[in-house]
Design a protein around this nucleic acid. Structure first.
Length: 872
RNA sequence: GGGAGUUUAGCUCAGCUGGUUCAGAGCACUUGCCUUACAAGCAAGGGGUCAUUGGUUCGAAUCCAAUAACUCCCACCA
């Protein structure tokens, strides 16, 4: 049967993925084996796969598949996140397109649409992961808003409230005027932006003098209730106790003096708008200033905005400045660079806003979370993220957990008719508590009004490792006991605070144990120009197209080859191409081996036996190094090492060494061993390239469809013979030497040559040298050989007699250059050795090495001189 | 403003506790090959003052200090 010379991934991938599903090979149940648990960082339910997911999930799959082959009970739990804000934004937009306004819908009606949307788009991303080969236990697929997860969130909220860790209060929060909700500090992204600094004149009440105040936000003057200067600022002492008139507004406000003001900035005078700036708010509290809120929730001016009411904040800025300039109240306008907070999800400019929200106290719980990372119970890879983590936890502020959205877990607080509220897991409990609290036994459910807000998305994802195994509702169930704590968490560093830190807190609080042992931080996938891949830039390739083009295995290899932990990954399609080429290489190695005919009666040659012994030793040595790489989470290293083992050592060397002559059979012992080695390599490669390895493993072993490489045993490093590896290294150099001569002299590979080695060495690989160099034999000679091309390996001379004209000049030049270099080298060694301080201070071993270098160099120089003599 | 990190070949990166892993790998590049597994390939090559400057040391890519450039995180400077 003819096998195509090009590997075709598509059919193979589809075939094996459904095979794995059918055989339930991804599924895990607790048993006697050791567990290896990984929980997926749940992607947004309405999201589509991007390159970051590709990298992240490839890494997880590599670790999970490897653990499974190492005999562990691997369980990789998939799921999606309801992503409160971004999903709500998408649903609202979808409704708007259908001419429906969210405000016209009841909560129930709205949620119906939202769930429909979720059902329609929710599966996409998980299906895309299947194309990548992800070996998730799909039976366990969870959603942060499914029943168990929803109830877990509510249970935790009530519990934390009862413990006094959750409270409700009026604070200055980050308001997203587009999503119409508060967001946490972590959800505010500060971006450098060029704006203007406006210098405005505030006239002193009743006088003709004025003070100039610099501001970036002139539209907020409607809310000004004071102007503040530094108490020791000599320029403004005359203002003490006076009042000024807010330009264009006419309101008379006091001058206050506080050391908060930076005298160097602007004019040293600061306008105070307590309702719209956190610092101003603090000063407002300190000096009992009025707080005038001038904005509506959507960022337009409210009735306090006077003639600007209804105008958007940025339009208002322009309008006000125009009016002020016309009124002569603007001194100057400067360009100014500053950082402006944007909403992580909607990118809207964040408006500081005073509002009543739910908060979680963080200081105590943070301490425990810091401890377990500091003492190494949880390890970060790379370790540098410990610093970031520590810094955040040491300066942590309370977490604003309420969101003015519907898509999420509704806050389980019920307000009482006469004020106050109760917190309970359900409406019945709430009613009972309400009756107790008010002493009013006649209350009915209709008297209570549940808080309409929902919780921050991260308030559900922080429970993920616990809630996946139902560890919140049933803290001592079999699954949580078996699978928790999970082994490795693979995630991007940008959610270290949002997610990683908080999961650690939840673990401590609800399981009294860490949620995972290791955190592997991936890098950020960037384009060739170093830009972060993003939808708006349009610089992110479509992962599914990449898979179609290069095969899932090829793309996986491409992602991993250059992705050391914590380092950004400059993505280049060429890497996937390299991965695809590698697939093809493996495919063709299989074609070669399967093309051999086996002769049961043919005895195994000494050359074949030695070749296989060499490769087995080399394989074991390499395995040890790969195991070391994995223990340090150096996946790209492990992959590159395996890649070279397969391509260079197995294909380019071993297969060439044992390859029978054209149309000649191979002996059975060699054939069987090669197949076994090939299979071992496929096992080693399987975690990286699951599809092609399964395909080849089946072809090589002619296995029934009941078996799978997925559950084959991962080869383990065994002892190896260092000598045979060394001998082969020498043989390799001889082979490369001869090939080099052919290459530089233009001698065809088909022309049979003769090789002389000066000395009476003899190497176990002589037969291999003869085969791979196309020479008629190796002759040991005592003396230099005339009329020959020459090269050296170490200090041994080799000659290839060559009848045609030898370019003596060129040969001489080459030899003399080498002689010169070696003499220089010897010189430097001698210099070291003649340095008494070196000989006295350096360890004996190091000195011995130098002496050996000296001896070798001297021998080589002698040999080179002899060769030069021979030529002359 | 505070903190962390990076700087080694054209590109992306290894290089651990200073000395035979010491100047490496992959890709790219050059040359020659359509050799009966593979041109998505084979063979052979070229290529680096280890950012700069000092210091420690018998010895520094490696340790220390300063400088420069870049990256990231955190922080309420209008």
């Amino acid at each position: 049967m003819e096998i195509a010379s090009k590997y075709n991934p598509r059919a193979v991938e589809e075939k094996w993925y459904s095979f794995w599903l059918e055989k339930k090979l991804f599924h895990s149940e607790p048993d006697r084996r050791k567990p290896y648990t990984v929980v997926i960082p749940p992607p947004n339910v309405t999201g589509v796969l991007h390159m970051g997911h590709m990298l992240n999930n490839t890494i997880q799959d590599v670790l999970v598949r490897r653990a499974r082959m190492m005999g562990k009970n691997a369980c990789w739990v998939p799921g999606t996140d309801h992503a409160s804000i971004s999903t709500e934004a998408k649903v609202v937009k979808m409704l708007a397109e259908r001419g429906i306004n969210k405000r016209d819908l009841s909560r129930d009606e709205y949620m119906k649409y939202a769930w429909e949307w979720k059902e329609k788009y929710g599966g996409i991303i998980l299906n895309q992961l299947r194309k990548l080969g992800a070996s998730c236990d799909w039976d366990r697929t969870a959603f942060t808003m499914d029943d168990i997860r929803y109830e877990s969130v509510i249970r935790v909220f009530v519990d934390l409230y009862n413990k006094g860790l959750i409270y409700r209060g009026a604070r200055m929060v980050n308001w997203d005027p587009q999503a119409l909700t508060a967001v946490s500090d972590e959800e505010v992204i500060y971006k450098e932006s060029h704006g203007k600094l406006f210098y405005l004149k505030y006239f002193v009440d009743g006088e003709d003098k004025y003070i100039v105040v610099a501001t970036t936000r002139p539209e907020t003057i409607m809310g000004d209730t004071a102007v503040c200067v530094h108490p020791e600022d000599e320029r403004y002492q005359w203002l003490k106790g006076k009042k000024v008139i807010v330009p264009g507004v006419g309101r008379v406000v006091p001058i206050i003096m506080d050391e908060y003001v930076d005298r160097e900035f602007g004019t040293g005078a600061l306008k105070i708008t307590p309702a719209h700036d956190i610092n101003d708010y603090n000063l407002g509290m300190k000096y009992s200033l009025d707080s005038i809120d001038i904005f509506n929730d959507n960022g337009t001016l409210n009735d306090n905005g006077g003639k600007y009411a209804g105008m958007d904040r940025f339009a208002c800025r322009k309008a006000i400045m125009k009016d002020l300039e016309e009124a002569g109240l603007v001194e100057k306008i400067e360009d100014y660079e500053n950082k402006v907070g944007h909403s992580e999800r909607t990118d809207a400019v964040i408006e500081p806003k005073l509002s009543t929200q739910w908060f979680m106290k963080m200081s105590d719980i943070a301490k425990k979370a810091l401890e377990v990372v500091e003492d190494g119970t949880i390890k970060f890879h790379p370790e540098k993220f410990k610093n970031t983590y520590r810094h955040w936890l040491e300066n942590i502020k309370d977490w604003c957990i309420s969101r003015q959205l519907w898509w999420g877990h509704q806050i389980p607080a019920w307000y009482l008719p006469e004020g106050g509220f109760v917190v309970a897991e359900n409406a019945d409990d709430a009613l009972r508590l309400a009756k107790e609290k008010t002493g009013n036994a006649n209350l009915t459910a209709a008297d209570l009004r549940q808080d309409s807000d929902c919780l921050d998305t991260w308030f559900s994802s922080w429970l993920w490792p616990l809630s996946l195994f139902n560890g919140i509702l049933e803290p001592d169930n079999d699954e949580i006991r078996y699978y928790y704590p999970t082994a490795d968490l693979i995630t991007a560093p940008d959610i270290i605070f949002f997610w990683v830190a908080r999961m650690i807190m939840a673990g401590e609080e609800y399981a009294h144990q860490v949620p995972f042992r290791n955190v592997y931080f991936t890098g950020i996938v960037r384009d060739k120009l170093g830009r972060k891949m993003s939808k708006s830039l349009g610089n992110s390739p479509d992962p599914i197209e990449l898979i179609n083009k290069f095969g899932a295995d090829g793309v996986r290899v491409g992602m991993l080859l250059t992705a050391p932990a914590g380092n950004d990954l400059p993505f280049d399609e060429a890497l996937c191409e390299q991965g695809r080429n590698f697939s093809n290489k493996i495919w063709n190695a299989m074609r070669l081996v399967k093309g051999w005919s086996v002769d049961e009666n043919l005895p195994q040659s000494e050359e074949n036996r030695t070749s296989l012994l060499w490769f087995e030793s080399h394989l074991n040595k390499t395995l040890a190094s790969i195991e070391d790489d994995f223990s340090k989470y150096r996946l790209s290293n492990a992959l590159m090492t395996t890649y070279k083992l397969v391509w260079d050592d197995f294909c380019s060397w071993l297969l060439e060494m044992i390859k029978p002559a054209y149309q000649k059979p191979i002996d059975k012992a060699t054939y069987d061993t090669v197949i076994a080695l090939f299979e071992k390599l496929m096992c080693m490669l399987h975690p990286f390239m699951p599809f092609i390895t399964e395909e080849i493993w089946h072809i090589l072993g002619e296995r029934p469809d009941t078996e799978s490489i997925m559950i084959a045993t991962m080869p383990k490093a065994q002892s190896f013979d260092e000598n045979i590896i060394k001998d082969f290294e020498t043989a390799k150099e001889v082979i490369i030497g001869v090939r080099g001569l052919r290459n530089s002299k233009g001698i065809s590979p088909k022309e049979v040559l003769h090789l002389c080695e000066r000395g009476n060495g003899g190497n176990a690989f002589d037969g291999i040298i003869i085969k791979l160099c196309n020479i008629d034999g190796i002759e040991r000679v005592a003396d230099k050989v005339e009329n020959a091309l020459s090269f050296m390996v170490g200090s041994t001379e080799y000659y290839v007699p060559f009848s045609q004209n030898i370019d003596k000049e060129a040969e001489l030049k080459k030899l003399e250059e080498e002689l010169k270099y070696t003499e220089g080298f010897l010189n430097s060694v001698m210099k070291k050795l003649s340095n008494e301080r070196f000989v006295n201070n350096a360890p004996e071993k190091v000195v011995a090495v130098e002496r050996q270098k000296q001896a070798d160099a001297e021998q080589k120089i002698a040999a080179l001189k002899a060769q030069i003599e021979a030529l002359k």
